[in-house]
Structure formats: C-alpha cells, structure tokens
Design a protein around this nucleic acid. Structure first.
Lengths: 238, 238
DNA sequence: ACCACCGGCTGATCTGGATCAGTCCGCCGT
DNA sequence: ACGGCGGACTGATCCAGATCAGCCGGTGGT
C-alpha cells in the first residue's frame, strides 16, 4: 500500500497503527477521469486516500482561468486540509481513473484522539503537502519557465520513487501539456516550447506518457532542485 | 491574547485548554527586526507563537532572489510546519521588532497526546496557513499585478480584523514596497506603480505605514477576493 | 467513411512587468 | 553639518512568455 510506504519515510508505524490504516480499506470507491470528487465551496465531511491513479487539486478564478495547486499520486491524501476548514477552498478532479479509500471526518477525529502517533504521521503528511505548495509558490514566483518545468518533473519523479513508481531513469506520466500549464502558471503553447528546449539540451524527454531523465544530475543542477523539502530522508522515531 | 482570539474563530476552547495556552506564556523572547529566528536547512526543535509585531517566512534561491511565502501577524504560529519535518525548508525573519512565545517540540507532542481538542485547533491553524499559501499560489500564477496586490492587502486586512488590529477602513502596515514585491513575485518598481494605479482608481491608499481602503467593496470586487479560505466564519464545535 | 475533437506542435505578433538608471527626501551616525 | 543609506518614486528600454492563428495525426462516434 503506497500510503504505508510514504508514512514509513517519516515514522515506523506499530502493528496496531497499521491495523487502523488497514481498517480503512473497506470503503473503497472508484472515480472516472474528469469527474470532481470535491468541489470548491462545498462543506466536506470526508477526505480520501488515493490508492491508484492520479488526481489534481485546483482553484477556479472569476475570469475563467484555473490554477492547479498540486497533483496527487498513490499514497497521497485528497481533501485532508478541508476536513477541518468549514468549507472546501478547492476542487479535486481525477486526472486518470482513480481508486480511493474514503475517510470519514469522525474516523479521523477518532484516530486523532486514540492513536497519537498516527495523528502525528498525518500531521507530518499535511506539513509535507504544505511544504510542496510552498515550493510551487517559489517556482511560480521566481523561476523561469524552463527551470520551473524541470523542477516540477523532478519533484514528481522523487515523489513517485518513494512509492516505487519512478526512478532516476524516469516515470510514467499521464499528464497532458495543458494540465502542466495549469499547474505551472504557463500557457500550454509555452510548455510545449520549453519541453523542446529541455529535449534539445539533452536533459529530458517526454513522449507517449513517459518522462525520461537523460541527464538527471544536470537537470537537478539546472532546476536548482533540492529535495529536502519533501522530507524523504528516511524513518525517524518521534 | 491574539492567538486565543484567532483559535476562537474555529473552536470554543475550554478552561483547561486555555490554561495550557496560558502555561506557554513563560518562555517569552524578543527579537529585533532583521535577525532570523529560523534558518533554511536548520533542523528545528521549536516553534513560536507571535505575540506582537510582524514577521515573514521566505525561501532563498540559488540565483540570489527570494520569495516571501507569507507574513505573520500577532496570533500566528512561526515555524510550526518545520517542527515535524526533519529540517526547516524556510527562513523566518522579523519585519519589525517582535515578541514571541517559544513552544518546544516536546510540549507540542504532549499537547497532541493530552489535549486532543487543542491538537485539533492547531491542526486547523496549519490547514488555514496552507489555505493561505494556496491562495498566494493562485494569485502569483493567475492574477495580474494590480489584482494580486489588492488581494494581498485585503487578506491582510481580514486577518488583522480577526485579531482586532484592522477594519474595513484600513490597518497599520509596517511593510516596505520591497517586502511586498518579494511576497508578490513582482519588482519593487512595479509595486510602486501599481500602488499609484490603485490610488488613482480611488480604491486604496498606502502612506506612512497605513493602508486605507477607500472603496472596500469595489476593491473586493476588483481583486475577486473571497475570504472563505480564511475560515473566519465563527466558532463551531467539533 | 466521415467528421469532430483532442492533444501535440509551430510561427508571428503583442504586452505586462522586469530592468536600468536615475531623483528626492528623511533619518541616523559621527 | 555632512555623508551615507534606505525607501518612495519616475521615465526609458527590453524581453519572457502570452496570445492568436493554424497544421497534423490519432481516435471515437454515427
């Protein structure tokens, strides 16, 4: 289970805690690509754990544009932030067909009260999510298009590597250039051009749903990518 | 105490919980403007509650630029996110002279285990912080300079109103145009021009450390400002 | 068999905001 | 009393990336 692998990067969970996580397996649901799970403005009573497939969370603006805040890959929480806020501030949309496990708000509060270590693990996951959003903010605010795109793909690669779905060679990527543009604050046209530049610079390729890192170290250097904000340093007892 | 006022927007805290918050009052510290509290790359064992003054959190880039992620006002936590991450991913710098209360990691973990409602309140505060960062991301990614600046000042106004230091008339603002530029992903030159445009459009003025909203509703409309992400709807029992 | 649509890809043109290069004023230190 | 400095403010120029307009190939619907 990707979530266990991910949380394992933070804390070695005990048998009892794993049992609670396993206990969640019951309420499985499937969503097709494009149909929103959670909508901006809605008041939520549930969050989800993504079991398979990719999703994205975004905000709509009055002028019709949208900004994708982050993509979620297996093992990530969906909508966790809006469980405690009175209404959801964003929309969650599956990018591919996805399988999720529903977590009711009540279960979450119970886990908080009864399994403090699990609560800490969830707190860590939220902190890590926030750190990723912060890094995206820095990217959009201060990196140019090429650095931003390279950084973005390196981050996805690192996150997928953690759950065993990527490596320094590359990863399978179901995103369109339009989706990347919405996430990076660029136009799709420009994403296309920048991908060409990166290909011509022998840094990476992106074809047929597959990202290949040609020169991983060169790319890391080019994008000024320091993965420490992903906090994947390995498990540490609290 | 501004923190109690702020958390009160989320949950009515019991006497025992207030006592725990009061118990934190002991380890008070003061910092002068400009001297970092927490540095990027450092491994942290403490967070802080801001009692008075303003601070900002930012990330440095390899090319010498920086991106301010958010400003903190009284009642806000400083460095909470990096308590659980192995190393801090950002720097915190006081904007004015500030007073803080130190919270040791151990105290925080204890509060998590023993006062679950307080833990929830803290969880809420982190979620709200993340929601603000997300809104900044949307602003930088998709709003033009004028909308972005207007939105930014409206957000600060709403946050300060919550702790009794602002209103729809305006608020005292110790920020320089350079600091705003670093937060908004703009150049200081352009911030200056945009402030002039907003003044000439009779929307707001910013002079001598004071923001005055001339036409609050017009400004809200102009910036497409919907404060629901700040989750200041009023207390609700969990 | 055809056409509508989506995603990738490209060239030409336009523009918001950066950058450069200053001025002016008030404050602080000596 | 003087120089240095930080912050507000301005005009001129430049450029990264948006926008517009269009082509191409695959695929799904009828």
């Amino acid at each position: 289970m990707p979530l266990v692998r991910k949380l394992g990067a933070f804390v070695a969970l005990s048998g009892a805690e794993l049992a609670v996580l396993e206990g969640l397996r019951k309420r499985r649901r499937t969503f097709v690509a494009g149909r929103d799970l959670v909508q901006q403005g809605q008041s939520d009573q549930a969050a989800y754990i993504l079991m398979s497939g990719w999703a994205c969370s975004y905000k709509d603006l009055a002028n019709g544009q949208r900004q994708i805040v982050d993509f979620q890959v297996p093992g990530d929480f969906l909508g966790l932030r809006s469980v405690l806020l009175h209404i959801s501030d964003h929309t969650i949309e599956p990018v591919t067909q996805i399988e999720v496990t529903e977590i009711l708000k009540s279960d979450l509060l119970e886990a908080f009260a009864n399994t403090p270590r699990l609560a800490l693990a969830i707190f860590w996951a939220v902190s890590r999510d926030e750190a990723m959003v912060v890094e995206h903010l820095v990217g959009i605010g201060r990196r140019n298009a090429a650095e931003r795109l390279a950084h973005f793909l390196l981050e996805l690669g690192a996150r997928l590597t953690l759950i065993g779905q990527g490596s320094k060679e590359g990863f399978d990527c179901p995103l369109t250039q339009y989706l990347m543009a919405d996430a990076l604050g660029l136009s799709a046209v420009h994403v296309n051009r920048v991908l060409r530049h990166l290909r011509e610079a022998d840094l990476l390729t992106f074809h047929d749903g597959r990202v290949k890192f040609i020169d991983y170290d060169g790319l890391t250097d080019f994008a000024d990518f320091d993965p420490s904000y992903l906090d994947q340093g390995g498990p540490l007892l609290v």
